[in-house]
Amino acid sequence: MKNKEPLILAVVVFFTLVTYYLVEPFAHSQMHKHVEGQDFVYNGTADIEEVEHRIAIAKEGKADTKALEAKLQKKKAFWSDVEKISKLKGDVVAGEGTFAMCQGCHMEGAANMGGVTPPSLAHSGALYDTKYLIALIKDPAMASNVDHKYADTSMHPMGSIMAMVSEPQDIANVVAFLKAKKSGEVTPKEAFVDSCGRCHANRYEQLTQSGFIPKTKADIKTGTDIAMLDFKKKVAQEQISLAGYLGKLPPDLSIIIRARSEHFLETFVENPQSQLAGTAMPRVGLTKDSYAKVLEYLEDSGDTKRHERESVGKNVMIYILIFAIFALLWKREIWRDLH
């Protein structure tokens, strides 16, 4: 009797793989159109392409493109100015003087301003891209690609900087200062807290928009912990303020690493508009290395046991192969006189 098993195995494997391919890679490619990243280069390419694309669609629909054309010109001019400023040599000492104007809002324990608390700049030189920083000081809304929210971009919470620090050389100086004096080694935790933590909580790491949850003690007689209640109230107020400013409370990022693909997260952080058009989330301007640190923090919170999974997995695979070999040897012995 011919042994049909190899053919049967091939048929089963074939149909299984076809089904898998259709249900997973193929279906997901239909649900999520691929978005190209910019490899953490901030020179306005994505922003300009976005407007050009919208002009093309408007033209197809025979709609008026005057407003969009004006916007396109504005963006092109803006990013070309940024390019020019980036070529200036920045004076670190002069920059320190200019930086004093930033500290008014960007200080430790800063107050909530217009809905959001200004982030710490302690590591900003290390975390953020040079051109992005230049663009941010020149026009925060344009740089972070949320200018569509404002008729006048100086209405952005940081919009006042446009009048305070407007000279190209001043901008170059303060950015040089940040790069020289506000850099240093940044841990994944610091990277996340500084660049994401004022809007996004991470409850699995005990991080709220108002900082890490402190250790408090409950009153021994009643069991109530007034210090914790006060802290929770503070966080709740900050969250209400954020939700008011942004339209809704930004999601907790504890497990985002398993809720979105790595490609989505990378392109989203680099340019939120590319994945969720119209979102209130600003572009953050992280460098490639800083983003890697943020990603590591997200993996630590949402995929904590990944190293253990890989090492235990390797050992289990070795074991199960040995198990299969012994199963084969036993089967051969039993079937020796059955065939």
């Binding site: 997973e24 809720a259 999974r309 890989e310 997995g313 199960i320 192969l321 299969a324 199963a327 039993i334």
Partner: peptide, 29 residues
């Protein structure tokens, strides 16, 4: 004994999926 052999080979693929390729079973959504 033949059952066990098939089970053993199945477990090789099963555990590979458990440790290294599980997104199809634990959907991101």
């Amino acid at each position: 004994s033949k059952d066990m052999l098939v089970v053993a080979i199945y477990l090789v693929f099963f555990f590979y999926l458990v440790f290294f390729h599980y997104d199809f079973a634990m959907d991101p959504v």
